[in-house]
Design a protein around this nucleic acid. Structure first.
Lengths: 207, 207
DNA sequence: TCGGAACCGTACCGTACGGTACATGAGATT
DNA sequence: AATCTCATGTACCGTACGGTACGGTTCCGA
């Protein structure tokens, strides 16, 4: 997407802070202008209108996350399994992040306007990178003979379901984040173990 | 929860229609009074304030759904498996329902106010009945020797994740509902098959 | 028949917010 | 130095909405 100037990035960062701190109602044009020491006129010049600002916040936040490409050398099954577990923990960490939750809440709350334009943006910028990383990992595992599946997307969705379950929606609904972070690795390992039971090398395909 | 009068139920039904049709912005006190042929004063007398109205909508909607208790006679494995598939399809049907999506969007959009009171209501009234039904089904299957698990809650969450994956959040974000309903049974059967791979009789426990 | 309670419809109020206009000032360019 | 560009800050406007007040009507019990 088109980049923003450093000044605009600073304003967007400030907007994200406001959104995280107080929800959508705290993100007013006047309040953002005051908090970011800019003028409302500049906001409208840069982002068009309020919806443009929200969209810019999403793309800006997405531009901050980088998907760590897996290093290709991954000889042992243990390493690969560990990579999957790391992915699972990263995924849960992202979904439980304050900014991610705030932006998802924002997009979901606006899903009835403009044909869910914000929702489409979140799906595109927020989920696609995750899926890309997961697909690369899965296909790497398949190439090395550690995994067995026919449809990469199906396998990815299964992995996602086993990892996330319904915790994302629960967090979106305001439930305090899951266990005190010592629970997270256990859940991640459990999910990966279950995934191997379904798509590990010895498993028979279900499709 | 305390019941409402028939008149109040009719007003709440009308409010749900407004919410489904136009999102939260379409649900104004004046608009509801006009649509339901009642006065704003009555709305405030009955429900206190706007938040009370939203909470009443959630409890009212929850009061409409009944969890069909499984008939205890379930001799064959095929019957039990079919019951699980029916549960899966029912679950997806509920989550994809217009009213459910609208109320979840509403609660998620307000998750930053009042300590996510609406979100807590949705979690309590919307998800607890589902889990209750699923737990009964799972434990029935375990009693009959068809399933093997130690923690019912864990097994339920696994089942939920395999069935729903991330489709709920995607729908909340405005993605049109999944395949043209002929895809749903296939997905349900696949999820159940995967669940049996993890917790079927012959499976070794992972925990 | 009277009186009160509940309710409808409408008018009203205060406020908050999105969006626009304008005056001022700082930096760069010619 | 003159000027152009860009941004700030403030003031302003229209509107929409939550919440309240009030007059009028219906219904029910005494």
């Amino acid at each position: 997407m088109e980049p923003f100037t450093p000044r605009q990035n600073a304003v967007l960062e400030c907007a994200l802070q406001l959104l995280v701190a107080g929800g959508e109602r705290a993100l007013t044009t006047a309040g953002l202008a005051r908090a970011a020491n800019c003028s409302k006129e500049s906001l409208y010049k840069w982002f068009g209108d309020r919806d443009g600002l929200l969209a810019a916040m999403i793309t800006y936040q997405a531009s901050k996350v980088r998907t760590p490409g897996p290093r290709e050398s991954m000889p042992t099954l243990e390493d690969f399994s560990r990579s999957l577990a790391v992915f699972a923990e990263d995924l849960m960490g992202v979904l439980a992040g304050e900014v991610s939750l705030a932006l998802n809440r924002l997009a979901i709350g606006q899903a009835d306007r403009d044909g869910a334009r914000l929702g489409a943006l979140v799906r595109e910028h927020g989920r696609l990178p995750i899926e890309t990383r997961a697909r690369a990992l899965l296909e790497l595992g398949r190439r090395h003979g550690y995994l067995k599946f026919s449809d990469t997307h199906e396998a990815y969705e299964t992995l996602y379901g086993l990892i996330v379950r319904d915790s994302h929606v629960r967090m979106l609904l305001g439930e305090p984040p899951v266990g005190t972070s010592d629970d997270l690795p256990r859940r991640a390992r459990l999910a990966i173990a279950q995934f191997f039971r379904l798509h590990g090398h010895g498993a028979q395909d279900i499709d």
